[in-house]
Design a protein around this nucleic acid. Structure first.
Lengths: 246, 246
DNA sequence: CGCTATCTTGAGTAGCGTCAAGTCATGTGG
DNA sequence: CCACATGACTTGACGCTACTCAAGATAGCG
């Protein structure tokens, strides 16, 4: 028996938003059947990404926006001097690449943290279609706006929270996003390393590790390697804003 | 002689993007004459804001987006626990309020840092019009995307730069934005307090003050109260990325 | 089964925050 | 026009948080 999967013809592969369990979370939210089919026509399913593979690279030309269908991605901003920072983690139903519309060049790398399926949405087609379908236009604007709102939240976190507050906020945010996808809000697997969490939160990996240990001692969470159980979400929530803050 | 200016009828006041010196920086960039006139029809000039006045408040319903015509604004994100952080400073030609499209509620306060004139763009009208005018649609998307890209830059700054790097990056950013508006890139007046700069950069006002003094000793800048002269922009640029970084 | 990446924990330190005192600029009312 | 009040800024001394460096444990992968 062959151990390799037969290669898939990328071009011909058609997703069907209409049959995707995420369609109420993702770009097509709110569309009717006929509109869904029109959207389906412009969307391609990319070759699945293996863990560690790039979806796009900083500096690359914007072709498409991408939606995570399954899996887990991160985006990393790069500074000239080689510094690098995780700007976001993306799970199923979330849209990537919107930072590139302004300049037509991606300003970050997008990398798979686990094997992932990605829907490709050619941007020109999307703009065209959203002129015809006001609901789609409206929802696309909402998605971009939510990204801005999320960024403001991260800025608040980075600029005014101390280490343990940041980590608590991060865990609660993950929990809420898992819940929205029908997964347990209290037990989940971290797809990223301590270093990546640290990078996202503006902290060093040792600080993340210590904070995990401390939360565990306080019985707020249970950690075993990458698996997390939130044992006292309310406690975590209470922890945010307690420390005087900067 | 009356010392008070005669009140202006807010509703009837019509701006004219076509005659605005900022129109190539602002929303109408790239539009033709006829399109400009259609955009003019949906835009109102608000009553001028006095220093300290709110343009909108966190939690308020989204009605319109706003463009700064003259003056200087800040937006402040509020955290439940009362913490507050400056999320951005906005100068002429820049658009405010895009964070609210996702939820229909503003997630920050917008406050005038000096007397300012503001153009009001009813959001529903803008969506409508941008379906008719692809150039406008495209440019609106670019503006939202640029806001996302800017936010990523701020996240990088907050997450991975030390105090003096942050301030240097901030000064260079202001310089470049003044230059784009035809003002001197090397001499300008800070419209905000040290505390507001600190809040934006995730630092305390004392740290800002010390960094200014240090830059002055190094002859990178000259500071007198709120007026700044950049004496060695290259030096400031070199300073970013030198210190080991986090 | 061994190699490597990842994680944990400890000890020492640097950078920035905190607190405090004092200067300076701006505006107000007498 | 000056005296005074107020807010903004500067500077110093000290302390705490999170970083750095280092050693060892653990897990995942080939």
């Amino acid at each position: 028996m062959p151990t390799r999967v037969i290669p898939i013809n990328v071009k011909l592969l058609r997703t069907a938003c209409s049959s995707c369990s995420l369609h109420e979370l993702c770009l097509p939210a709110g569309l009717g059947q006929e509109e869904l089919e029109r959207l389906d026509k412009i969307i391609n399913l990319k070759r699945p990404l293996k863990r560690g593979e790039y979806l796009y690279r900083s500096g690359g030309e914007l072709q498409s926006l991408y939606a995570v269908r399954t899996g887990f991605m991160k985006s990393c901003v790069l500074h000239d001097d080689g510094r690098e920072q995780v700007a976001g983690f993306h799970m199923a139903g979330e849209l990537l690449g919107m930072d590139a519309i302004g300049t037509s060049k991606h300003m970050c790398d997008a990398i798979a943290l686990e094997d992932s399926d990605i829907c490709e949405i050619p941007f020109g087609d999307l703009e065209q279609l959203s002129r015809d379908i006001p609901t789609l236009q409206r929802h696309f604007h909402r998605i971009m706006s939510r990204e801005i709102a999320r960024d403001y939240g991260v800025m608040l976190l980075l600029g005014s929270m101390r280490a343990e507050e940041r980590l608590a906020a991060f865990l609660l945010n993950l929990s809420q996003r898992f819940a929205a996808r029908g997964y347990s809000p209290t037990r989940f697997i971290l797809r990223m390393t301590r270093e990546e969490i640290g990078s996202y939160l503006g902290l060093k990996l040792e600080t993340i590790s210590r904070a995990f240990s401390h939360f565990q001692n306080e019985e707020l969470i249970a950690v075993h390697n990458k698996s997390i159980e939130l044992k006292d979400s309310a406690g975590l929530r209470a922890l945010i804003g307690q420390s005087a803050g900067r």
